[in-house]
Computed example of a mutant assay.
Amino acid sequence: MTYVIDPVRIGTEQLPGGRRLGWAEWGPVDGVPVLLSPGAATSRHLGFGGDVVDGLGVRLISLDRPGLGASSPLPGRTFGDFVDDIRAFAALRDLGRPLMVGNSQGAPFALACAAAGVVGALAVVSGADEVAEPCFADALPEELRRLVALAVADPAAAEQVFAGFTPQGMWEMVMSGSPECDLAVYRQPAFAAAYRHALDEAFAQGAAGYARDTVLAMGRWGIGLSDIAVPVDLWYGEKDTGHSPDLGVGLTSRIPGAVRHLVPDAGGAVLWTHAEQILSTLLGRDTTP
């Protein structure tokens, strides 16, 4: 199976104020725009569904968050700043109100966009949950609980901790903590090469961008999930061990009308193993005139 292919178009967009936003695209230029908010410490280079986007008529656009890959840094940025970037990017590229996919640590950023109404529908795939919610305190491993507490109490100190991460360290953490069904994807040569490329590219400016992402994702989000008025689907593999302690049950309940899909015999790599199903469902949720 072909899990990933290289981008077919790649570049940067200059945002109001002069910062750059890095992007990569797959699929037809006149396809339905679907933005991708990538997972932790990865860049625009790691897309998904490259073998199905043409048939589905999807123009997949993966975006580097500030300080990662080709995007200019924005120290102290918030989820609201990301929403502003997406709103500006969509206007500059004449995308209207695009659809969106948020993967892993990219999920809360995508949820912020849904809450602000700048996207027409959202798929959260293997989404990082709001682990700072008190209900998860007893469900988290001790080290993760300590890091979450630090992110809430002292975000600057937490950023310093996460700024010590490297591409190799991220690779080893993922490979050592993933179930066999995920490793079968990650070890596939083309996927491993694309993943390593995305990690190296994400850290090209240093680890500050990843560190800020992680502090935001691990802290209290402050996102109005109950205000989301666009369709949201949440996808989790039943063997996913690292993204949500309850596989998205609580997160789904906090989003009006959200639909949770639990995929049998899949793990955190469900974005790549079930790309066609995820994109087809997302297209069916599009309410944009």
Rank of each mutant, 00 (worst) to 15 (best):
Y195H: 15
Y195R: 08
H197M: 10
H197P: 07
H197A: 12
H197L: 12
H197W: 13
A198D: 03
A198P: 00
L199S: 02
E201T: 02
E201H: 09
A202C: 03
A202M: 00
F203D: 02
F203G: 00
G206C: 02
G206V: 03
G206F: 02
G206I: 06
A207E: 05
A207Q: 03
A207W: 05
A207P: 04
A207C: 05
A207H: 01
A208W: 09
Y210P: 01
A211Q: 01
T214E: 15
T214W: 02
T214D: 07
V215P: 07
V215M: 03
V215K: 03
L216A: 03
L216V: 06
L216E: 00
A217H: 01
A217D: 07
A217R: 04
M218R: 13
M218I: 07
M218T: 08
R220D: 09
R220Y: 08
W221C: 05
G222E: 02
I223W: 06
G224F: 11
G224E: 12
G224Q: 08
G224L: 07
L225P: 11
L225N: 10
S226V: 10
S226P: 09
S226D: 15
S226Q: 15
I228C: 09
A229W: 08
V230E: 10
V230C: 12
P231A: 11
P231Q: 13
V232A: 14
D233R: 15
W235I: 02
Y236E: 00
G237C: 01
G237K: 01
G237H: 01
G237E: 01
E238Q: 14
K239Q: 15
K239L: 14
K239A: 13
K239T: 10
D240I: 00
T241W: 10
T241S: 11
G242V: 04
G242D: 05
H243I: 08
S244A: 10
P245A: 07
P245F: 05
P245S: 06
D246T: 06
D246W: 04
D246S: 04
L247E: 05
L247I: 04
L247T: 04
G248R: 01
V249F: 09
V249S: 12
L251N: 08
T252A: 14
S253A: 15
R254D: 10
R254E: 14
R254M: 14
I255H: 06
I255G: 07
P256K: 11
